[in-house]
Amino acid sequence: MGTATTIGVALAAQKPDSALGGDRLYLAYEAREVVHDLTIRIPTGRITVIVGANACGKSTLLRALARLLKPRSGTVYLDGTDIHRLPTKEIATKVGILPQSPTAPEGLTVADLVARGRYPHQRWFQQWSREDEAAVDEAMRLTRLEALAGRPVDELSGGQRQRAWIAMALAQGTSTLLLDEPTTYLDMAHQVEVLDLLADLNTRRGRTVVLVLHDLNQACRYAHHLVASPRDASRPRVLRARS
């Protein structure tokens, strides 16, 4: 991603709050630098979609925003503070991340997977409070998983499984949700099902959603903000945001 890459330009006049963002980010895996001097703001209460060619650093950017990857230089900030200076458990109450194609341990039921999302709100002696139970129930209701609560995750269809993981992230109760290619390996119907669910969470619950997507059509259809990165990071493109 290039030097002049700025995101969410069209909304500057509306001054959207941005709780999460990155300032002059340089992101690298070992020797390979994949993101080069990127400044990004994630508009609160909107759907932001990151698109781009393979290996252009989409997932890298998402991982950095979720503090899974430490920038080589530059800062990811959350509510105005460097995210790497915040306690990781505190971040987990504000930002949820669903990595690319996560795998559940064999035999883990949907209900138990979703309950794992309550970890940041729990303490050793406080493992299943009324709030935990209510949040898990609501997450399962929103993702329409009640009937599947007792089923092992590894026996579900691809779309159901992805919904179960999204439910886990919802139970976490964060205002911002980051998802890395949540539609990969799903057929078209299930892709739309997952994206509709996320759009619904955004409009009805006001969640900030950040997605990495492969498909440009889907990106344009669901995004309020589109972050596009060119294959050649040395030649930045001006981005257009739709709102």
Partner: peptide
């Protein structure tokens, strides 16, 4: 048990 990235994201 859910994998490193998920666990990290949950605040572990």
């Amino acid at each position: 048990q859910l994998g490193d990235d998920t666990a990290h994201g949950l605040g572990v």
